[in-house]
Design a protein around this nucleic acid. Structure first.
Lengths: 205, 205
DNA sequence: GTCTATAGCTGGATAGAC
DNA sequence: GTCTATCCAGCTATAGAC
């Protein structure tokens, strides 16, 4: 029933995510979030008991989409297909959820001081499961014996860089805004490199 | 002969670099820098006119080491050797200058609001030169026709991640601190992947 | 549920003694 | 060149009218 409550909370979280991504937690003023959301500042505090509580809510909202890409590692049985889909999904996230990625990157870079123990465990569990899956393919002789952990780090880093460090990418490519073709080119190169590195043959499409 | 002046400035910049890397600019208190450096806060302001001026000094001190890795792209004529050395150098920087890397990453992630136009140009020029160099190898048929810009982004991202997101790496590897073998494993995997992706044969050593 | 006005504190910056 | 004491801006957070 509290449809207005939910709607406002969502609006505030969404706006806060943009500002936190842009400025970082400490540099963000609650008044700026309020202004961008078109609300008086006190309204923020009516819905969230503190700036930090709001930030935690943003972190929560951000983790689900970021973890969804992992599903491709499980749903596809063929290594080439799985890696290919995974990289594509990660690049899509960098494009469609750049703010979420930045908020998360910021949090991680500073040692995840606001991340709940539950979320830490969840992330670790997801990573470990993906690593185990890749190790399985290696053990079955279906791909070259790469270190699965470092393979994941490379995939994470090279896909997320298109969100987290988009400013640098735009500087160097000379773009005002990254376009579909840029993300496609990135996905292509990363996929190509990873598949060759793992010595698996690409799937069509 | 202001040897004491220089010594103190260096100490303050070095300490500030650590704290800025750990907390980010806005979350850093000058009192914390002072405490860690074993100085009263007013001393900081005797040497630097503001927190922001100190931060800019840190940024300045950080850029040189980060750019040095680029030299390998020019000094080596053979693509395989150059890329190999470049990746190794970048990984070494992630290990030896992790704080510098984090300060810089933070700055870039938020759109480089404190970076001087000179430094922006310098970074862009270095990047463009490296890209041109790689494009030259492609044109000469000495490596596969990869997109040189995206190749650089991948190398940057996957090497810097070992500094910027070391917390995550440690979480997943279960290490308390990354050791030589971790950086070696990373360098090996990244090099392997890049060389295969570029279709150049590795050099010995 | 909304908003104005303001309290209260944190932290950047400085005056001025040594 | 060093340091203590303090000032004051700007921010988070809230009281209280509507």
């Amino acid at each position: 029933m509290p449809t207005i409550r939910e709607r406002n909370k969502r609006l505030i979280i969404k706006t806060a995510c943009q500002v936190f991504a842009d400025k970082g937690f400490a540099a963000t003023k609650t008044s700026e979030i309020a202004d961008k959301a078109g609300l008086p500042k006190a309204n923020i505090y009516y819905y969230f008991k503190s700036k930090e509580a709001l930030y935690r809510a943003v972190l929560d909202s951000v983790i689900e989409p970021l973890l969804q890409a992992n599903s491709h590692i499980y749903e596809q049985d063929e290594p080439a297909r799985a890696l290919q889909d995974y990289i594509r999904a990660k690049i899509r996230i960098s494009r469609e959820h750049a703010d979420a990625s930045k908020v998360f990157a910021n949090e991680i870079m500073h040692g995840a001081p606001h991340l709940s123990p539950q979320h830490r465990e969840q992330l670790k569990a997801e990573a470990n499961a993906s690593v185990a899956r890749i190790q399985g393919w290696v053990d079955d002789g279906r791909m070259a014996p790469v270190d699965p952990q470092h393979l994941m780090f490379v995939i994470w880093a090279s896909t997320q860089t298109y969100a987290d460090f988009d400013w640098q990418i735009m500087q160097i490519t000379g773009r005002k805004k990254l376009a579909a073709q840029d993300y496609d080119a990135a996905a292509k190169l990363i996929t190509d490199m990873v598949l060759k590195g793992c010595e698996v043959v690409p799937c069509e499409a």
